[in-house]
Each structure stands twice: as structure tokens, then as C-alpha cells.
């Protein structure tokens, strides 16, 4: 993937392989048909997004947040937190008081 000069370049050329790669990054299992229809929709939306290329942004600082604010710290005082039972009640799989997940480490691998 080459770095595009502007947002407009990749829109028309977005390939099925790119869409598959993005779906992997996003951790979204999709069928081939879903990936293909997603490719067409992304291309159409990206073409519209390319209209921002016409805006002169030279020397303009990016604005991540509309209201100027900085980090705020709360007082370091203990307060009541959520009930662990209530929180665990939403977990899809439990073992005792732990959330169960598939094996993450390869048992055959060295320490």
C-alpha cells in the first residue's frame, strides 16, 4: 500500500484484499459476499469523503475536541465502586469469580 497524496486516490481502487485486511484489523468475521458488498459501499463513501480534499487546510492545527479542555483530576478519595457480582452477571462465561476465555498461550511453547 503506497501512501496516497490525498484522500481521493484510494477510494476507487479499494480492493477486496484491502477490505479483508481491514476486517481482520477490526476483528469482524464476514463472509466473502459481505466483504464484496462492503467494498462497494466503502468505495462510494470514500469517494464522497474525498470532497474534503478541496478544503485548504495548510497550516491548520487538527482539532480533536470541539471544546478546549484539558485533563481533569478528581480528588484522591476512596468512593464506592460497582458491585462485583452485578458486573460479573453480564459476563458470558464464568469460572468461579473469574471470566473464562479460550486458551491464549500455546501449551507447547517454551517458557
Amino acid at each position: 500500500m503506497s501512501t496516497p497524496e490525498s484522500a481521493g486516490d484510494p477510494a476507487a481502487q479499494i480492493s477486496l484484499e484491502q477490505v479483508r485486511h481491514v476486517a481482520e484489523l477490526a476483528r469482524l468475521a464476514m463472509s466473502d459476499e459481505e466483504l464484496e458488498s462492503c467494498r462497494g459501499e466503502l468505495a462510494s463513501i470514500l469517494r464522497h469523503i474525498a470532497t474534503i480534499d478541496a478544503v485548504d487546510v495548510d497550516g491548520v492545527e487538527p482539532l480533536a475536541h470541539a471544546i478546549d479542555m484539558s485533563n481533569r483530576l478528581s480528588d484522591d478519595e476512596p468512593a464506592e465502586s460497582l458491585s462485583i457480582d452485578d458486573v460479573l452477571a453480564n459476563a458470558p462465561a464464568l469460572e468461579d469469580r473469574f471470566i473464562a476465555v479460550p486458551k491464549v498461550l500455546d501449551p507447547g511453547a517454551d517458557e
Binding site: 501512501t3 496516497p4 490525498s6 484522500a7 487546510v57
Partner: peptide
């Protein structure tokens, strides 16, 4: 947001946001 597109899309959109 993916590598290679961040500046062309996200950064530029935030610049337009300021405008």
C-alpha cells in the same frame, strides 16, 4: 485510521473540523 491513510483522512478531517 489504518497505516498509510491516517493523515489523508483522519488528520485532514480534524483540520477541517477546526475550520
Amino acid at each position: 485510521l489504518s497505516a498509510g491513510y491516517y493523515d489523508a483522512y483522519y488528520k485532514r478531517a480534524l483540520q477541517v473540523r477546526r475550520l
